[in-house]
Amino acid sequence: MNLDVRTTDLRALNSLTKYPSIPTYHELDPKNGGLLDTAVPFTGPVLATEKVDGTNSRIIQLPGGDYLLGSREELLYARGDLIGNPSQGIVENLKPLAEALPPVTGDLIRVLYLELYGGKIGGHAKQYSTRGAIGWRLFDAALISGYAGLLAAPPQEISAWRESGGQPWADEDALHAIAAEAGVELTPRLFTLDAAELPTDLEKMQALLTDRLPATLVALDESGGLAAEGIVFRTPDRAVIAKARFQDYARTFKRRNR
């Protein structure tokens, strides 16, 4: 089956394939942005990966061979367009990759979520390179079947479906297979531990970050500052996911020690 970009509701497709909000491992206080003592509950094995600080990018592969490129919030380019939105260099850098990808098989939409980083992308860019180098890492993929009904749903229904975990995610094994097929690297896999070993104490989590990720593993050359942004924790089936950023813990303790 083909899905024709020209006859598809692009607002619905955009909403369907946006990357959802990922909670912080320790809950954020809505009053001041500091961290609270409440932590996301995990069970079983927990995989830790480096959180790369760049711009969230999408390659949306449609049945029939068409594809679109997007930022986290908007679609920027569709296969065959003469002009693409230059926002943050997503189209310029990821179009060659999208063109080289093998088409999806079966009646599904496949979305590859990549962090495009370095250059002048984000406040952390100089930690990866001060020479303008740009790179990308795959951090997630969604495999959406039964999309016809979803594309016909009201916008608020699609958004609610997405933010409540409706998107069907590739598990860890499938993500490795997708990365190998696409010829892209995943965000670094750091370690796996049992959920019982995952600290729920703020100080101990800050210590874990410092101990397990003293420097970024995705530097683009030797010129960068090498500071890492943080760690993403996930179950191998991606049913539970949360992020822990160095800056959130530093900000929290600075406020508490005033």
Rank of each mutant, 00 (worst) to 15 (best):
E172I: 10
K254W: 10
G70F: 00
Q61C: 09
A180H: 09
I60N: 06
S159L: 08
T38C: 03
S145M: 12
L217W: 04
V5A: 02
A48C: 05
M1S: 15
V184W: 09
S57G: 02
V218S: 10
T235L: 13
I59F: 07
L68W: 01
L143H: 04
L209Q: 12
N257G: 07
D140Y: 02
G146L: 06
L101I: 01
D37F: 02
V218E: 09
V104H: 03
D4L: 02
H176C: 14
L82W: 05
G183S: 11
P86H: 07
I178L: 10
Y19F: 15
G89R: 05
V5D: 07
A177W: 14
T105C: 13
E203H: 14
Y19A: 12
Y117R: 04
I144P: 01
S71Q: 03
P199V: 08
L202W: 10
L116M: 14
P236E: 14
L97N: 15
I134C: 00
R212G: 05
L35E: 02
I158Y: 04
A244R: 15
E99R: 07
P45T: 00
M205Y: 03
A152V: 00
D53V: 12
A78K: 11
G33W: 09
G135N: 03
G135H: 06
A196H: 06
R58H: 03
K18W: 08
A152W: 11
